[in-house]
Design a protein around this nucleic acid. Structure first.
Length: 577
RNA sequence: CGGGAUGUGGCUCAGUCCGGUAGAGCACUGCGUUCGGGACGCAGGGGUCGGAGGUUCAAAUCCUCUCAUCCCGACCA
């Protein structure tokens, strides 16, 4: 493609609307433009990158035995009412009515539609397993869209769904998708981890997120330094410290005045303690009422884990009034001893030496509090967030926390949707059974953004070869010189004949502009032809990622073809597995 | 939805506190000089200052309301 004929509106300065690097660079490189909050147009260059991800996704999904289809974006309310999600989904689901006052929504995901399709057609175990996917625009009316393509409201997603005869086969399908995802993100040239994730209220038995490691990522993940364990912070577990013997000779619990001390810090400063020696008491509210959650004073409650342990759909910190009524004390002076509500204790609390906690009386705390002697819990479990340095639950080595961008997520769904929508089949014994489902998503635009987050420098993008819209930038620096132009034209033809996607900068612009644009949009290889270098009979070849360029004689380009083949090898190497 | 910020030619911003009839750089058009890392000179075109209402002789500037966008927290690919 000739640059002079392609619509690539590059920007010299960072647009104010963008904060993160991928968003800035995609706007500057003329890949995307914003239409409304979280809604973007893909310009030619941006679409080419998107198509490259899609191509890899299609190849790997098809290879894994999945079949592509395309479902409607507009979905009738009845299906969502049938699954119960019309009420559950909340405001992210954009609803509207047609001219006949029938209710519809814009599809944020397609479990209902695909299950509806399959339940009408599949009757026999002989027709299973089935794995169907699509690549399509989704709409989720996000509370807070941000960071360009990273969290849009309208976004391109690959969503796939598997249907199996039983749990065991469904797990096999899940595993096949896991492997496919692993290959997809490798081929995209990304540095990523597959991490264990919270499967949420979906009730699935397991779930993995594919997370691209990047400082700007919205997700925190815990990874083990000693083994392959990696998990979303929401889900990450830790090995608990060894139990400390508690004997009867411990001094009895006593009440101490702590005037004006509310927070853990204040209490610790007043009593000269470390936060580890205290119990933090938090009151949460759910549809089952109030819960007093007690954890080590140095730790944070994980609301996701708490929700899972309680088995409730939502929790929130209780209001002051409710706390005062239930405890007769304010939030800074609460504790599990004599509490009038259900007590949930983190697993660690029972293993700790005598502790300090609130006395359920304003201005007083208790010390020498021992679990089992002075109080017990109604429920014990893992309800705290993992911290850097915590021991890995698998091998005990210290874990570290890193940030990442979730680009893919796979779930074993089980029978949630097949049950709600009665998607059944007859097994070998002629018995009717529910199909066991899985679902598998990839954010296509987000994958492009993540690749940029991970591959850039001050000058611009350094897209992985597989994703780059063009593999080669050919810069003709002197468009007035007929010889130079003739040579560039000829070189351009040679590149085309070899099937190498080339952006030929034939614009009548100064060299500086061409260099800046080439670096900005970050094509893997740059070929430069100027009057002087041409006169010397050499072609300047520079990799975007390398600071030095090499000079190749114009008469013998074999070295050039070799370099390009090498760069392409990663993608093709994996795809020919 | 709570908290914070910003809206001024296509882009990046100044001007707003202290009211007096809109400015710079880039981009664009023409001419000339330049030409290996976002050139320079000259001459041009382009803005009802997000919108509505109000105060005032006079509003980008002060007041009220509203809309949009961005950032920080709960959702998610």
């Amino acid at each position: 493609m000739r640059f002079s004929r392609m619509y690539i509106p590059t920007l010299k300065e960072d647009p104010t609307e963008a904060e993160v690097i991928s968003h800035k660079l995609m706007l500057r490189a003329g890949m995307i433009r914003r239409l409304a909050a979280g809604i973007y147009a893909y310009l030619p260059l941006g679409l080419m990158a998107v198509r490259n991800v899609e191509r890899i996704v299609r190849e790997e999904m098809n290879r894994a035995g999945a079949q592509e289809l395309l479902l409607p974006g507009v979905q009738p309310a009845e299906l969502w009412q049938e699954s119960g999600r019309w009420e559950q989904y909340g405001r992210e689901l954009l609803r509207f009515t047609d001219r006949h006052q029938r209710e519809f929504c814009l599809g944020p995901t397609h479990e209902e539609v695909i299950t509806d399709l399959v339940r009408h057609e599949i009757r026999s175990y002989r027709q299973l397993p089935l794995n169907l996917y699509q690549i399509q625009t989704k709409f989720r009316d996000e509370i807070r869209p941000r960071f360009g393509l990273m969290r849009g409201r309208e976004f391109i997603m690959k969503d796939g769904y598997s249907f199996d005869v039983d749990d065991r086969m469904a797990e096999k399908s899940y595993h096949v998708m896991f492997e496919a995802y692993d290959r997809i993100f490798k081929r995209c040239g990304l540095n990523f981890r597959a991490v264990e994730a919270d499967s949420g209220a979906i009730g699935g038995s397991f779930s993995h997120e594919f997370v691209v490691l990047a400082k700007s990522g919205e997700d925190a993940i815990a990874t083990c330094s000693g083994c392959s364990y990696a998990a979303n912070l929401e889900k990450a577990e830790r090995a608990c410290p060894v139990s400390k013997a508690v004997n009867d000779e411990l001094p009895a619990m006593e009440k101490v005045a702590t005037p004006g001390c509310g927070s853990i810090e204040e209490v610790c400063a007043f009593l000269q303690l470390e936060p580890e020696m205290t119990i933090k008491s938090m009151v949460y509210e759910s549809d089952r009422g109030l819960h007093l959650v007690v954890v080590n004073g140095a730790r944070q409650v994980s609301e996701t884990k708490l929700k899972a342990l309680l088995g409730v759909p939502w929790i929130a910190l209780a209001e002051e009034d409710g706390i005062a009524k239930a405890f007769g004390a304010r939030a800074g002076s609460l504790g599990p001893v004599g509490a009038g509500v259900e007590v949930i204790a983190d697993q660690e609390v029972g293993l700790m030496p005598p502790l300090v906690c609130g006395a359920n009386k304003d201005g007083f705390h208790l010390r020498q509090v021992v679990y089992g002697r002075d109080f017990t819990a109604d429920k014990i479990g893992d309800v705290v967030e993992v911290r850097a340095g915590d021991a890995c639950p698998r091998c005990g080595a210290p874990m570290e926390l890193v940030r990442g961008i979730e680009v893919g997520h796979i779930f074993k769904l089980g029978t949630k949707y097949s049950k709600a929508l009665s998607a059944t089949f007859l097994d070998q014994d002629g018995k009717e059974k529910l199909m066991v489902m899985g679902c598998y998503g990839i954010g296509i635009g987000r994958t492009v953004a993540a690749a940029i987050e991970q591959n850039h420098d001050e000058q611009g993008m350094m897209l992985p070869y597989a994703l780059a819209p063009f593999k080669v930038a050919l810069l003709c620096l002197d468009t007035k010189n007929e010889e130079v132009v003739a040579y560039c034209d000829q070189l351009y033809r040679q590149l085309q004949e070899r099937g190498i996607e080339t952006l030929y900068d034939d614009r009548n612009e100064r060299p500086g502009i061409k260099f800046k644009d080439a670096d900005l949009i970050g094509m893997p290889l740059r070929l430069t032809v100027g009057r002087k270098s041409y006169a010397r009979g050499i072609l300047e070849v520079k990799k975007r990622r390398s600071p030095e360029s090499m000079e190749i004689p114009v008469q013998d380009l074999s070295q050039l073809w070799h370099v390009i083949e090498e760069m392409a090898a990663d993608d093709q190497g994996i795809s020919s597995l």
